[in-house]
Amino acid sequence: MTGFLAVYYRELLILKGKVLKQAASMAVSPFLFLTAFGYAMGRDHLVDGRPYMEFLAPGLVAMASMTQAFGIASEINISRFYWHIFEEFQAAPLANWQYVLGEVLAAVTRALLAVAVMLLLALCFGVTLSYSPLFFAAVILNAALFGSVAVICAMLVKSHADQSLITSFVITPMAFLGGTFFPLDRMPPAVKAVLSFLPLTHAARAIRAAAFEQAPPVFPYAVLGVLLAVFFGVAVVCVNQARN
């Protein structure tokens, strides 16, 4: 029953080996966005009644937790196609859900590390947010959800190249459109309707509300929770299918 710990432990060891490099690379894109958009827009440019930099920071938290959690897909791919480590898990007396849980925990860990890096950066830019348990709950839900999606993708792709296609066509667009850089209200209704189907939109809303100490919106948390359950379940099925 504790086999998932082995999967998680392995990912931690891999992460430990390159934690500094990883943290540095996690800092790059938030730094660029804060500089390019946050500074450029200036202090007086208000969005939703706040300086743009302040509006942007929680959006970047949502984005970072998503991309870093999804990033385990390529770790899984490397260990699967290149090192064949996945066979070691398949041959072990490990239920499929345990494998998924181990990888999802690794995804959440990576996401939290990225968020910590991001928040330090924000601090350097003079932005402090409210870091309540609700804030972290939203981050963790978001990371676990995209960790599950990462496992699904890693099981479905046939090569490492397919993996980067998914990143370019799904993850990157979502990172920009999912309520990270601008409020959805500024979009035409049709676009807004489409974007409200993206999980990241809900994560950004939940994280932003917590960061600004607004009343916690129930709906985004519910959506994230339901989607997490669905994607986790699909991931378990995909791990089972990967046997062939």
Partner: peptide, 24 residues
């Protein structure tokens, strides 16, 4: 297995330790 499937970046000890955990 026919091909080597160890974690290259990890030590011998770490590789074996993960295996032991997998088998409870």
């Amino acid at each position: 297995t026919q091909h080597i499937n160890l974690d290259n970046e990890l030590t011998v000890e770490e590789n074996l330790s993960i295996h032991g955990m997998l088998f409870g």
